[in-house]
Amino acid sequence: MLYLDHAATTPVRPEVLEAMRPYLVGMHGNPSSHHSAGEQAARALERARERVAASLGMRTSEVIFTSGGTEANNLAVKGIVLAALAEDAQRRALVTTPIEHDSVLQSAAYLHRLHGVAVRMLAVDGHGAVGADDLAAALDERPTALVSIGHANNEVGTVQEIGSLVAVAREHGVPMHVDAVQSAGRVDLRGLGADAVTIAGHKLGTPKGIGALAVRSRVPLEPLLHGGGQERGRRSGTENVAGAVALAAALELADAERAQHASRVASQTSAFIDAVSDAVPQAALTGAPEHRLPGLASFTFAGTAGEAVLLELERRGVISSSGSACAAGSDEPSPVLIALGIPAEIAQTSVRFSFGRSPLPDGAPAQLAAVVAEAVRAVSAT
């Protein structure tokens, strides 16, 4: 079985498992405890924090370990906006886009519903890109507490020109949060320049249940979890030491391997896109043709049903998805594809292929495209 749903989650890497194993079976101390076992755990936690901070281009003290990307996005969006409201009640606005992960969009909806925050949705073009001029116009309209825009979209793979967007936010004195869950490990994040960055370990080869939010020290943050004051008071709860070690190890491996693997994976993805476009007449690539994540290709297949194509692909030994795993099972067309201007009946035919860090064998993109063509023909014939 060929697993092509790495955008949803990745297998745990053996090297990561080995790095975290001592903190699962032997070194089990609580990092808040003031004895040798606790101090040993605290040292491991801080070493992991240093390594994560280095990968993100942030200070060690700015990294907050969380249970994953969803919690980190909630903490960023709610925490920064609530802190801003406490300082200046006039900064009652949040700017984001309709193609963000649900953890961002539902956090924005919460702030609107319970705190009267005005949520401005920036339009995206047909590839899913945000314009810097549109962001500037939105920030000119009213005092804003936060801009939250994802680095790379998890359904279509479009990578935003984050540098230009960060520059606009900075000119207006507004902090910017970047959800980098999909891009972490695949793209160098050290030069983003954002004020807050979210990552999740299970997209990088760690077990599920660990993530991080890095927030510049100058940005006030209201904690959402209260208790023992862990993570410098910004996220209470006993830290997942083994998970933090795993996240640091996965990021280090990804950073070391990126130059070696990224160009080949991108080349093979481009070959796959071309082969599918040639083999399947109704195939239409979604997202940006060039500024996209290496290893992600999403298509619509007009005249089919995306879920039926997925079943046919799995019968032929290929596991893929119809988009975000968080929206799996929904009968509604993808809001991301609708925001790109794709009609609902076409959006429901989408299939996403997301490759892992290891390149496919030579010739595999064409062979895989032939399997896709067979699956689409089987569905079209029914």
Rank of each mutant, 00 (worst) to 15 (best):
S183D: 04
P207K: 14
G209L: 07
P207A: 12
L189T: 05
H177W: 01
G205S: 03
R190M: 13
V178L: 02
L189S: 11
G201I: 12
V187S: 10
D195Y: 02
L189Y: 08
D188G: 01
G209R: 10
Q182S: 06
G209C: 05
S183E: 00
D195G: 10
A196N: 02
G185D: 04
I210H: 09
G201W: 07
A194P: 09
G185M: 04
I210T: 14
D179R: 00
A200R: 03
T206A: 13
D188L: 04
T206N: 10
H202T: 04
Q182D: 12
V197S: 06
A194L: 08
R190L: 09
R190Q: 14
P207F: 10
G209Y: 09
A194W: 05
L192C: 10
A200E: 02
G191R: 08
K208A: 15
V181R: 07
A184H: 05
V197A: 10
P207E: 15
V187R: 14
G191I: 03
G209H: 11
A180E: 01
H202V: 02
R186H: 11
P207Q: 12
L189G: 04
A200S: 15
R190F: 02
G205N: 09
D188E: 10
Q182M: 15
T206R: 05
G185T: 03
G193V: 00
R190C: 14
I199P: 06
V181K: 05
V178G: 08
A180K: 07
D179A: 06
G211A: 14
G191E: 09
L192H: 12
V197E: 02
V178S: 03
V197C: 10
A196C: 09
K203E: 05
R186V: 01
A180Y: 07
G191M: 09
V181H: 01
P207C: 13
K208H: 08
I210E: 11
G209P: 12
